[in-house]
Amino acid sequence: MRILGAPLRYVQGPGAIDRLADEIAIVGGGPVAVVIDPVARDLLGARIAAQLPAARLLDFGGECTGAEIAARAAEAEDARLILGIGGGKAIDTAKGVAIERRLPVGIVPTIASNDSPTSHIAVVYTADHAVEGVRHLATNPHLVLVDTAVIAAAPRRFLAAGIGDAMSKPYELAGALAGGGLNFFGGQPTELTLAIVARARAILLADSHAAMAATAPDPAFERVVEAAVLLSGLAFESGGLSIAHSMVRGFSVVPQLSGLLHGEMVALGTLTQIAAGQGTPDELREMADFLGSLGLPTSFARLDVTEDAVFERIATVALTAPYAGNYHRPLAPQDLVRAMRMLDAEQRA
């Protein structure tokens, strides 16, 4: 079967937050419980209250753990829609609450640091910030609302991370296709998915530097945000993941790397995937130059990861990811260790 999943409704543009009440009415309405992180509450609390005066605001505690999800679910009371507002982990907590309560979810990201807003997946962590596993909504979010004025006001490190996350998708789709892996709906990618991945790559290569330099939403900024949030989200769910995201599981257990944003980890994972044999040395160098020009990490040594034992632990944990087999050949831990070492060798060359 060819399967594509997508949010019921996607809305993007400056001032979009002021359409929130109307958009929620379109997708079903009803009492709303809002999982919101502290930064988003300070930034948008008054505007959310004006749009949804009866909504219950549930404060996100800082990490998307099973305990955090259960606590917020207990506070949701009579809600008929869960809304997640903030960064990726607050969003995933809202998805977790919706899963526990069997309710639809709406997502309002305040940064464009990764492609989780459109997906039906919530990544759950342990209390010490290592990836524990994933949970799945029955459907994709009913609403994804992206206010690009809010996104533009955030530090550019977040947008760079979103670009790093999105830039993995051409390589991961190729890995999934070569390895015979299915997408996150248990199907093959559609022709639309292939077109989405190609368009996202073209936008990111053409417009990322202009978007990073923009002081307010402009056409290049809007295209890059859409590529990082919508196109990348559709690409990974309906295309499949590979080594780049498998590496994130390994990176998350190493203290020197655990403080990186998800998209920063994915950038390193993409380079590792290319270095493991998917691309030529020239392709590896070109991608490292592009990602590095956006301020994304391209070297393990610069992050104080140098010991063989640490590389081996990363590789061993990475290969436990369910999509680690989505590659053109089977990989052993030493293959990934050599690939990671290659990045540092390229930086010294």
Score class of each variant (00 low, 15 high):
Gly295Arg: 03
Pro297Thr: 10
Pro297His: 03
Thr298Tyr: 14
Thr298Gln: 13
Phe300Ala: 06
Ala301Arg: 14
Ala301His: 14
Arg302Ala: 15
Arg302Glu: 15
Arg302Gln: 15
Val305Lys: 03
Val305Thr: 03
Glu307Ile: 04
Glu307Asp: 15
Val310Asn: 01
Val310Cys: 10
Val310Lys: 00
Phe311Met: 01
Glu312Trp: 02
Arg313Tyr: 04
Arg313Ser: 10
Ile314Ala: 05
Ala315Cys: 07
Thr316Leu: 01
Thr316Cys: 01
Val317Cys: 03
Val317Tyr: 01
Ala318Arg: 02
Leu319Ser: 01
Leu319Asp: 05
Thr320Gln: 13
Thr320Phe: 08
Ala321Ser: 14
Pro322Val: 10
Pro322Phe: 02
Tyr323Phe: 14
Tyr323Gln: 11
Gly325Gln: 13
Gly325Ala: 14
Asn326Thr: 05
Asn326Ile: 08
Asn326Leu: 04
Tyr327Leu: 08
Tyr327Val: 03
His328Arg: 14
His328Gln: 13
Arg329His: 09
Pro330Ser: 04
Leu331Pro: 01
Pro333Thr: 05
Gln334Pro: 00
Gln334Met: 12
Asp335Leu: 00
Leu336Trp: 00
Leu336Asp: 01
Val337Tyr: 05
Val337Gln: 06
Met340Asn: 02
Met340Thr: 06
Arg341Trp: 11
Met342Thr: 13
Met342Ile: 03
Met342Tyr: 10
Leu343Arg: 07
Leu343Ile: 09
Leu343Lys: 05
Ala345Gly: 09
Ala345Thr: 12
Glu346Gly: 03
Glu346Phe: 14
Glu346Arg: 13
